[in-house]
């Protein structure tokens, strides 16, 4: 039973990682850059929810406000910080992304202070009991939201004009441009989707643990990035798989007393192991150089 409940909790936290990892992997696949500020968008979403809750009170209104604000933020970051660097060296873009990350964290600290805020209005307590197994409502909610996000996003990418244009841009940006695809718009849409997902992930995290600080996005961000790399960065199913795998490993490791203190180490070891066997991730494309 312990194992089963660890598994269910793992699927749930893995779902949150997967939702964040989707933001990393889509931006990498389409804009060919690592957006290290992605985790901090979650945090900005959290503070947006905090402010909306103070003004209006309802958690769903707060979620909606956070989603809208994160989309605006994501698109603005892309427009101001990343688009001018299109065509610059990947290193310059990477460092810019890290800079944006520090900027967001520091701004939040200046505005809201460094002591954590409690968002008890968001917390969902209680759960259901099935025999010896008890599952929190927040866990069930996360599982349901993850499933919906994955299905909708997969259908969107596979069966819509914009989705096809996204794949086309990720395959060959110049060819897509010459086929009339507005690549700047497609990249902006990708950032918008990633940021909306970040807001949703932030909401799910705060339902479980309603403590909000300016660094709340950092660790989940790094773990989700790890998940995206494990799954094969650039691959959407890969991010989903990697996120869930990482969540399950984390939860099971946490439930074993001997491993519990080393949970983070266990998680990142999985990354090393996967990369040793499959350098491009589980579902990543293995490219063999043609000679």
């Amino acid at each position: 039973m312990d194992f089963l409940s660890a598994l269910i909790n793992g699927l749930s936290s893995g779902g949150t990682y997967a939702i964040i990892a989707l933001g990393y992997t889509m931006v990498y696949g389409i804009a060919k850059m690592l957006n290290f500020a992605h985790g901090d968008v979650i945090m900005v979403g959290g503070y947006t929810m905090f402010l909306t809750l103070m003004a209006l009170g309802h958690p769903l209104v707060a979620l909606a406000a956070a989603t809208v604000f994160c989309v605006i933020l994501g698109v603005t970051i892309e427009r101001l910080a990343y688009r001018p660097l299109r065509g610059a060296s990947p290193l310059a873009v990477l460092i810019t992304a890290i800079g944006v990350s520090f900027l967001l964290q520091s701004l939040a600290q200046i505005i809201f202070g460094s002591s954590p805020k409690m968002l008890v209005q968001l917390q969902i307590s209680g759960g259901i009991t099935l025999g010896a197994l008890s599952i929190d409502y927040s866990t069930l909610l996360t599982l349901a939201v993850t499933a919906v996000v994955m299905v909708v996003l997969s259908l969107f990418v596979k069966y819509s004009k914009t989705g096809r244009a996204m794949v086309a841009v990720s395959e060959d940006r110049d060819a897509a441009l010459l086929m009339g695809v507005n690549t700047n718009a497609i990249i902006a849409i990708t950032f918008a989707i990633g940021s909306a997902l970040a807001a949703i992930a932030g909401y799910l995290m705060l339902c479980k643990a309603p403590s909000l600080s300016n660094t709340m996005g950092a660790m989940p961000g790094i773990k989700a990035f790890t998940a995206a790399v494990i799954g094969g960065i650039g691959s959407i199913p890969g991010a989903m798989l990697g996120g869930i795998l990482l969540g399950v490993v984390e939860s099971i490791s946490y439930s074993v007393p001997a491993l519990a203190p080393f949970t983070d180490a266990v998680e990142f070891s999985i990354l090393i192991l996967v990369l040793l066997v499959r350098p491009s991730g589980i579902l990543g494309k293995m490219r063999r150089e043609k000679v």
Binding site: K161, R164, A165, V167, A168, E171, D172, A175, A176, M179, G180, V181
Partner: peptide, 16 residues
């Protein structure tokens, strides 16, 4: 071509 899209999808991207 967009190698990982199907033949029909390649044309559909062109249809824009």
């Amino acid at each position: 071509l967009f190698g990982n899209l199907t033949v029909a999808e390649n044309v559909m991207v062109g249809l824009g």
